[in-house]
Amino acid sequence: MSEVAILAYGAGNVASVQFALERLGATVRLTADPAAVADAERLILPGVGAAGYAMSRLRDLSLIEPIRAFPRPLLGVCLGQQLLFETSDEGGSVDLLGLIPGQVRPLTPGRGLPVPHMGWSRLSRLRDDPLLDGVEDGAWAYFVHGFVCPDGPATLARADYGGPVPAVVRAGNRWGCQFHPERSAAAGARILNNFLELPA
């Protein structure tokens, strides 16, 4: 079965992702060691909290280059997806990993919709992708976020929250989920399973 490394860098809720992968039978390793990251078969970049804090943790742990250079499947989850982009407005202006063009901005859904976007929203699929194999258009996913990634050519699936929310993105061997697949019941499990089956 697949092996997967989860970056445990002190800015992510790693246990729930770990347990979800273990339910799927994967061998999971939590690590913040740059060499172990570089050697991983596949890599998950989790994240909750603020972008600036997450980036400073990655910098302090010398993880930015190993992530940027990672040649096999990489999945950013929630804030982890946002970190794939270039900059974030969260806490001023923060430089991110710069793997996908564009700027992460505050979510401003209007119409009296609460922020953060917290709860279950439907995914609308734009393109076929191995990560979304078997995930139906309209499948429900659990979101918690107050900032939103730019919508562009990297978007594979969107949610609607007073405007388009890039929910699944891809650039080459890097994927991102704005929602929490580990907390998104059947559809989330399917996505994580698809990630484990991507050729590494």
Partner: peptide, 11 residues
């Protein structure tokens, strides 16, 4: 808390 987290695929 960990036992519950292992069980659940919802928040």
């Amino acid at each position: 808390v960990r036992d519950i987290a292992r069980l659940l695929d919802i928040p």
